[in-house]
């Protein structure tokens, strides 16, 4: 326990006498992930699929059931004589509001707001590495 803990700390302490072990740690970590990618990728991917499908079934079945039931209730309400049309009013309101958000999304995409969305996460790690090197 204590040896793994120490090596962990050594890898996270980037200053002073710990500079060297850290550098070693990084290279081994990178080559390590490369190897495990080759061997473990397949089983990892099938596992991911299994989990996704299990969750999808668990979530989708009850929610679809609920939606269909509620939708049926709404339909029954709208058929209900002359006032039935009022049941749709709030639904139309929600649809209009959602449509507004949807068009805002399209507008944002058209204006290039989704370009290079992933860049900052790499920059951040790069900055961290720079900072630790400069100590």
């Amino acid at each position: 326990m204590s040896s793994t803990m120490n090596s962990r700390i050594a890898s996270s302490v980037h200053a002073g006498q710990f500079t060297e072990p850290m550098a070693v740690e990084i290279t081994t970590a990178e080559s390590g992930t490369g190897e495990s990618d080759a061997s473990g990728q397949k089983s990892g991917r099938s596992m991911a699929w299994t989990i996704t499908i299990v969750f999808a079934v668990l979530i989708l079945i009850p929610s679809m059931l609920g939606f269909v039931m509620k939708f049926g209730e709404l339909m029954a309400l709208t058929d209900d004589g002359a006032d039935g049309g009022f049941a749709i009013t709030p639904v139309v309101n929600y649809l209009l509001a959602s449509a507004g958000f949807f068009f805002m999304l399209l507008w944002a995409a058209a204006n290039g707001m989704f370009r290079d969305l992933e860049q900052p996460k790499h920059l951040m790690l790069q900055n961290e590495r720079e900072l630790d090197r400069n100590v």
Binding site: M1, M5, N6, I9, S12, V13, H14, A15, F18
Partner: peptide, 18 residues
Amino acid sequence: YLYPRMLNRPWASPKLLE
């Protein structure tokens, strides 16, 4: 994470951490 890093020294007792 930060405390030992700032002290430039690993945690004294991994057992206590657990």
